[in-house]
Design a protein around this nucleic acid. Structure first.
Length: 440
RNA sequence: UCCUCAGUAGCUCAACGGUAGAGCAUUCGGCUGUUAACCGAAGGGUUGUAGGUUCGAAUCCUACCUGAGGAGCCA
């Protein structure tokens, strides 16, 4: 409610419920078209875009001139009567009765992002403003829905959120490159690349836990699938095995897609995302062993040999004839991290699984069953040349009530990219951190 | 880190060895139903930086800077 009038403040998205009423909306000028005696300020308020109509003959001279000379992205509050109007985009229009300009963008320094084309470098430099555009707004809306869906899935399936530290001592998995941070005198810590090892501790307290936060990779990856700072959700389950990981991962993906389709149709439409591609994602997902994946790739002309890891082109080749994700399990023990449980019948393969999304979106889930036997874990640490003293607490978990346990990690931005049908992961997070880009 | 490509008006691009141009944005004028509105006019440039070749360089060469695409690595 505005202090100076009795007009009710409404969201543009709810305008349909106020046809015939005089209400007010508070927002920013999205675009303005004008003729001599009529103008159409389009106002966005975060929930939608409302086309307003200001007619010269129906308004005080001063107000009409003020509206007619508005500049893009000026902030304003407009009041008027809502009317159904098939000619307008949202289906409704507001006949302006009064308005206040909160801040007028000066024409000497106009809003830099015009409705015309811009290059990616310019847009990334103006990311703080680019977020207001319809497309970026839609992507972040889908991202919000995905994160909420993930949380709701775990919270309603017996998992407890226990967040893990961002600052970690040196060795986590011993594979990726980490960001080093000065930690007071003489001590170095590293930004986390995974909360998994800590999840293995917390799941022995709660049974099923998950952590959900940012993770950091200092690899100089320069591709459309990589950020140096990204969000990951990592569940971990005690008394669980590889099959449990596959079941939970499949359920999680289908649940979250269901939420997006239920609540974010308008955003998908704004993104011109083919929703039928998402509607096709239903259980059961495809299942394949690493052995069979290698055979499939070789038959399609890949150079891959048994024992090697899949590259980007391999991942795309594996799914280009599929309409839903494929779970690939039992990778060579050699290419996986030290903590993977080997298969009972074939110790040369590990009980790990990767979920590869269709349409070339690549690995979105990676996980598996962890080693629960103390002696085997110690052997693996030695084989990977990892110092036992750095893992003393992790080793303890195998001494005090060790049980078979399993879990996985899902990268949020890759999931968002897939849902939105994006070309590049940089649009999936408000302020992406990439090789050579840390501003704004 | 490696390979490839690109830097020209605020933005998106053209000019490819011979006077630096268009659309959008901005300013001024016109228009009562526009949908990236339209029509007319104006202002706006050390062509990423530093060297070199040439009578003459945005254009050719070298180095550097910045960015993009890809590879590897990874989620």
């Amino acid at each position: 409610m505005s202090p100076e009038t009795s007009v009710k403040r409404v969201k543009i998205a709810d305008a349909g419920r106020h046809v015939g009423e005089s209400v007010e909306i508070a927002g920013w000028l999205y675009n303005l078209r004008r003729s001599g005696k009529i103008c159409f300020p389009q106002v966005r308020d975060g929930s939608g875009i409302m086309q307003c109509v200001a007619v010269k003959s129906a308004l005080p001279e001063e107000l009409f001139e003020k509206l007619k000379d508005l500049t893009q992205e000026s902030s304003l509050i407009v009041r008027g009567k809502i009317r159904a109007e098939p000619r307008a985009h949202g289906g409704f229009e507001m006949d302006v009765e009064s308005a206040e300009i909160v801040q007028r963008v000066p024409e000497s320094d106009p809003y830099p992002i015009t409705p015309k084309d811009h290059g990616i470098d310019f847009l990334m430099d103006h990311r703080h403003l680019w977020l207001r555009s319809r497309r970026q707004h839609a992507i972040l809306g889908v991202r919000h829905e995905i994160i909420k869906g993930i949380r709701d899935y775990f919270d309603s399936n017996g998992f407890v959120l226990v967040d893990t530290p961002i600052f970690t001592p040196a060795a986590c998995e011993g594979t990726s490159t980490l960001f080093e941070v000065d930690y007071f005198e003489d001590e170095k810590v590293y930004l986390t690349q995974s909360g998994q090892l800590y999840n293995e501790a917390t799941c022995a307290s709660f049974g099923k836990t998950y952590c959900f936060g940012p993770t950091f990779r200092a690899e100089k990856s320069k591709t459309r699938r990589h950020l140096t700072e990204f969000w990951m959700v990592e569940p971990e389950m005690a008394y669980a095995n590889l099959e449990d990981v596959k079941r939970v991962g499949e359920e999680l993906i289908c649940f979250v897609i269901g939420r997006v389709l239920e609540n974010r149709r308008e955003d998908l439409k704004a993104l011109e995302r083919d929703a039928s591609k998402l509607e096709a994602i239903k259980p059961p997902f495809h299942r394949m062993t690493y052995d069979d994946a290698v055979k499939k790739l070789q038959s399609k002309g890949s150079e891959i040999q048994w024992g090697g890891d899949f590259g980007n082109t391999d991942e795309t080749l594996l799914t280009d004839d599929l309409d839903r994700p494929v779970m690939i399990d039992r990778y060579p023990t050699e290419v996986k991290a030290f903590y993977f449980q080997p298969a009972d019948d074939r110790p040369e393969v590990a009980l790990g699984v990767d979920f590869i999304a269709p349409e070339g979106y690549g690995e979105i889930i990676g996980g598996g069953q962890r080693i629960h036997d103390l002696d085997l874990l110690l052997k693996r640490l030695d084989e990977h040349k990892l110092p036992r003293e750095a893992f003393d607490w992790y080793i303890d978990l195998r001494k005090y009530g060790s049980v078979p346990h399993a879990g996985f990690g899902m990268g949020v931005e890759r999931f968002v990219s897939w849902m939105c049908g994006l070309e590049h992961i940089r649009e999936t997070i408000a302020f992406p951190r990439m090789l050579y880009r840390t501003r704004p």
